[in-house]
């Protein structure tokens, strides 16, 4: 027994060191980005963790240099709109596939296949489609693309939540004479609300964070999203790292707010959707 006890003590030490190292690893880039946003250009060159003489100027200067707030607003609009599009399409389809056994094999297979395909496949064709539909360089156009892009994810996340509802509940509603759509809205939706919320949050984050489609499909100030705007800092010859960090951090605030407020739903949604 003594051997076993000693064994766990060194194990515990190793575990503690590993955990501490990983937490520092996870936190450091965010802390460094945040601290850089308060550094003067000279301060940046020092490469120290904390600024020597903190300045607040990077924020107003970055906002004057690039329309940061406008781009964040565009991103939020695209994300919310695309979340609505995704859910409106995915919720009834998931319900029908599982509870009505509609296309029980086909729909899951094609959603999985279209998730596995790299999005670069869709980029060129969708480019032309939006051009033809006159939706190029618009919030609505990008929201539509993101809304369709997130369908497979939403389907797989929602699937497990719908699966958890016992079949007797739907059958009871049907026997009472409720139509299928009515059953979905009046009986099932309230029951899977946590699942819908988690799915909505994940789809909104995926849309907000998306870059490939956004960079090819939006280019004017009226529709350009924050991820595209941030990438523009990269092309400049003389990058002002303080301003870039300030703009980046501002752009991350909406997402981090969601993470803080809804972390339980997010973790629940991610695990339930992918494990079950």
């Amino acid at each position: 027994m003594t051997v076993s006890a000693q064994d766990t003590r060194t194990d515990r030490l190793i575990r503690f060191v590993f955990l501490a190292a990983m937490l520092i690893f996870f936190a450091l880039p965010i802390i460094y980005l945040f601290s850089t946003s308060f550094k003067t250009p000279d301060d940046v060159l020092q490469g120290r963790l904390l600024p020597e003489a903190a300045t607040l100027k990077n924020y107003p200067n970055a906002f004057a240099h690039v329309p940061v707030l406008r781009m964040i607003w565009n991103s939020i609009a695209v994300a919310l709109l695309s979340g609505v599009i995704t859910l409106v399409i995915a919720v009834p389809a998931t319900y029908a596939t599982i509870k009505l056994s509609a296309f029980r094999k086909t729909v899951p297979n094609i959603t999985l296949a279209s998730y596995a395909a790299p999005p670069i496949i869709a980029l060129i064709p969708l480019f032309y489609l939006l051009q033809t539909a006159n939706l190029m360089d618009s919030v609505l156009g990008l929201a539509l693309v993101h809304g369709l892009m997130n369908l497979p994810v939403a389907f797989w996340l929602l699937k497990s939540f719908v699966n958890d509802i016992p079949a007797e509940i739907d059958e009871a509603a049907w026997i009472d004479g409720a139509g299928y759509w009515h059953t979905l809205f009046a009986v099932i939706l309230p029951l899977i609300f946590p699942g819908i919320l988690a799915t909505a949050l994940i789809c909104i984050i995926l849309s907000y964070n998306e870059f490939l489609f956004a960079s090819a499909l939006t280019f004017s100030e009226a529709s350009r999203t924050i991820t595209v705007g941030m990438s523009l800092f990269q092309g400049e010859r003389l990058v002002n790292f303080g301003q870039m960090a300030a703009a980046s951090f501002t752009g991350m605030v909406p997402i981090y707010l969601i993470a803080f407020l809804f972390q339980k739903h997010l973790v629940g949604g991610l695990t339930q959707g992918s494990i079950k």
Partner: peptide
């Protein structure tokens, strides 16, 4: 859980920027 969740939520473009700041030759941590 919160600390673990943050990197996952960060937009990949900003992940790139954060790591560029750390690994940059001039002024990288």
């Amino acid at each position: 859980r919160t600390i673990v969740l943050l990197p996952l939520m960060t937009p990949p473009v900003m992940v790139g920027i954060a790591w560029k700041l750390i690994l940059n030759p001039s002024g990288g941590w």
